[in-house]
Write a protein that binds this DNA or RNA. Structure first.
Lengths: 236, 236
DNA sequence: AATTATATTATGTCATACATATAATGATTT
DNA sequence: AAATCATTATATGTATGACATAATATAATT
């Protein structure tokens, strides 16, 4: 029983949603019922207010929410126009190490590792000869004289960013862009057990060689091994 | 050259951000500079307005954005209190097939497949004997008489939801919950090439058997095969 | 026809007032 | 003294009206 008093039965809940909540709901409903598509414009604020029987203030706040999650975009004189929602856009502002708790940061660290292994099939499917050439170039840049830590990190990012691009999956790519700073933050923070160095490390060069075979299973195993040091830190 | 007129050189951009944009920025800045933590409350709207030299309306809209992305939560009488951001919360409203374009939907279909394969290590790491028992129960419920399509789908969802839970990764779990309806929608829509049936299918029961060995590599291969029909539809 | 003024319109911002819920305080009871 | 209840103060929620601003449509000019 989830009520404080055992004798207290369920009597139904009261609608505590604010006017803005309701207005937002109705507007989304309006969009769906009218089968509106990208580019269509919503009725102007005053009309919405009049029709829903609330003040313009409420409508503005409801619309602002829709703007914030990227569903609409407001143009002066024209109104709120539907846009192809930048699905992950709303995440961008939240994805900062400073405002996330440790558990979440760790989850994201994991997420990135998982994504990279999980997208093997999509990489192999879409990779072109030019892509391979490009990856090879990046992989070769290491060792070319300067082996300072910062350069290594940059090459690391370039190489893996390229992999995401090859996957031709926009969501994946955007996720990666947002996850990368968090990953690096966690990597360098004291959040995880200290780094370990294992024997059978797969280098970027070797990854490229595997990619040349266009064998997804083989690549999946290779990238998993490549990331093994990271995995070890969370798997213990 | 990205300017209409070749003769037009770069003269620097003008800050076109609205007052709300700036206010939002300053508030986030305030949070970081003061090293505020979960539970702390922001100054009240009127104080923020006075200090930033804008109207309360602007402050309210800025705060509303932060509320929408789940960074703060406003309590009457108290103010805007920092909350552990529900990172994916803002996605919930956008994740509806009706408002996403086909390309994005397909990307999400892929994402789910990738996640499931990519999280193999985390499942194997965290799985308990009870988890295995539970998975076994779900797997056995299939075939117990009723083989209607709807039941199959429900068992499918139950089984895979359980897998995500086992991963003990909240982000992964939340993503899955949001992705599932989209996945089903795409699965049933005419968006992908028609379904194919392959020979070597790995069943839920077999997956459980593999999990008993606690071998992440083996499980990764198994789940990849289990999802092979889905993969085939996008890989062609 | 092309450019330049003008008017119109819908959003952006401001100011003020009041409603409402809740934290804090004080009064009452046991 | 502790617990309960009533009161008050306070910060957000909502409403209203006004004006600023930018973009569109229209008219005027070249």
């Amino acid at each position: 029983m989830e009520y404080p008093n055992e004798n207290m039965g369920k009597i139904g809940t009261i609608d505590t949603s604010s006017l803005v909540d309701k207005a937002e709901e109705r507007i989304v409903q309006y969009i769906q019922e009218n089968k509106m598509v990208i580019g269509d414009v919503l009725p102007k604020e005053l009309d919405l207010a009049l029709n829903l029987g609330v003040s313009r203030t409420v409508i503005r706040e409801a619309l602002l929410r829709l703007k914030t999650i990227g569903l609409v975009e407001s143009k002066k004189h024209k109104g709120a126009v539907l846009r192809n929602p930048d699905v992950l856009g709303s995440l961008r502002k939240v994805f900062h190490p400073s405002i996330l708790d440790d558990a979440t940061l760790k989850d994201m660290f994991e997420l990135r590792l998982g994504l990279e292994v999980g997208m093997a099939d999509f990489i192999v499917k879409n990779i072109t000869d030019e892509d391979i050439k490009e990856l090879e170039d990046i992989a070769n840049q290491v060792g070319s004289g300067d082996t300072a830590q910062t350069w290594q990190v940059e090459d690391e990012i370039r190489f893996h960013s390229k992999l995401y691009k090859i996957s031709k999956n926009r969501i994946l790519l955007e996720l990666q862009v947002m996850l990368m700073p968090i990953f690096n933050y966690v990597h360098e923070s004291g959040l995880l057990s200290s780094e370990v160095v294992t024997g059978d490390f797969v280098s970027h060069k070797e990854l490229v060689e595997v990619l040349k075979t266009r064998d997804a299973d083989a690549y999946r195993n290779a990238i998993r091994k490549h990331l093994n040091n990271h995995f070890k830190r969370i798997l213990g």
